[in-house]
């Protein structure tokens, strides 16, 4: 017996790689959901470690709301060129054009909720039986109880009351036809763990994660990037602010934080001393305490 336990980042990394390889071994048609955010960028890095020098046994899938930060799309395309893996894009615009969803109206209109439909359609079209995602249990209370292998019914729904027991590191990926499994390899990571890992591994990130000058408006007490996608009126005053983003989502619902963190070490210090959780910067979670739980039941990632 020895007393040398793994360093926490080594342990989290080894666990995530193990989970990715379980997906490869257990499923016929898995996919990795790639949002362009730091969590899914971390997943891609972990997949390189899990499968190189072989190819990924799954494509990357991006659900594109059409309301993206340009920097995210540039990053995505550069990354795909660099790693030489397959990318499938599901467009929310297609779901709107097909009449499957209706664009929200009003000041707080966002396509965030619409992407659930596009995601489910993309899963059905390609018959994906497992979708790997970058969700973490520390993000939100409802997520804290979700399994690493989380079974969804054919409507994409998560039933928190009927989750499978998940013991040791044995993941049961058996499903019926039409069902699929959402897999969360970095479930046990915290926001700070992700940042420290990015720093240790020297993983490049989209520039919007770092402090920059941007035209912003203040809405519901939060700073939003001014963009053609945001419904603005005379009450909205555009101000230049030094900001960065803690999450990367749809431009209409991802709030910025004022920041002078230009380098990764600055960000890590800022997060370590921050008193606002990451999801606190997502407007759509503020609706109600049970907002996330409701959306997850409906098939949201």
């Amino acid at each position: 017996m020895s007393k040398n336990r793994l360093d926490y980042l080594d342990e989290l990394e080894a666990e995530a790689i193990y989970i990715l390889r379980e997906v490869a071994g257990q499923f016929e048609k898995p996919a990795l959901l790639f949002s362009g955010g730091k969590d899914s960028i971390t997943l891609v890095h972990l997949a390189l470690k899990a499968f190189r020098p072989g190819k990924f046994p799954f494509p990357l899938v991006h659900i594109d709301t059409g309301h993206n930060f340009e920097e995210t799309i540039t990053y995505r395309d550069e990354m795909i060129a660099r790693i030489g893996e397959k990318l499938i894009i599901g467009h929310v615009q297609d779901s709107i054009d097909e009449g499957k969803v209706i664009e929200q109206k009003g000041k707080n209109a966002s396509r965030n909720a619409l992407q659930t439909v596009t995601l489910l359609d993309t899963i059905a079209k390609h018959q994906f039986d497992a979708c790997i995602g970058g969700a973490r249990r520390d993000e939100e209370k409802a997520r804290a109880k979700e399994r690493i292998f989380s079974v969804r019914d054919e409507f994409g729904q998560w039933d928190p009351k009927r989750q499978r027991p998940e013991l040791w590191n044995i993941y049961n990926g058996k499903i019926h036809k039409g069902e699929n499994v959402r897999v969360f390899p970095i479930s046990n990571w915290t926001e700070l763990d992700v940042w420290n890992y990015i720093r240790r591994e020297n993983i490049p990130l989209p520039s919007i994660y770092f402090a920059h000058q941007r035209d912003c408006i203040t809405r519901n007490g939060q700073l939003m990037a001014a963009s053609p996608f945001l419904n603005m009126d005379d009450e909205d005053i555009i101000e230049k602010k030094n900001v960065r983003f803690r999450t990367v989502g749809d431009m209409t619902c991802t709030a910025a934080v004022e920041s002078y963190a230009f380098e990764l070490d600055d960000i890590i210090n800022e997060i370590a001393s921050s008193k606002i959780s990451e999801r606190g910067a997502r407007m759509d979670d503020k609706v109600s305490e049970a907002a996330m739980e409701e959306r997850k039941k409906g098939g949201y990632f």
């Binding site: 342990e11 550069e78 020297n202 990130l205």
Partner: peptide, 25 residues
């Protein structure tokens, strides 16, 4: 530039948030 690379800063090793060799219980 759209992406950003960074260099680890060894001078901050002792910082609260940059701790290494911690394990998980």
């Amino acid at each position: 530039m759209q992406t950003k690379k960074h260099t680890p800063n060894p001078s901050q090793e002792g910082n609260h948030s940059l701790r290494e060799n911690m394990d998980i219980l």
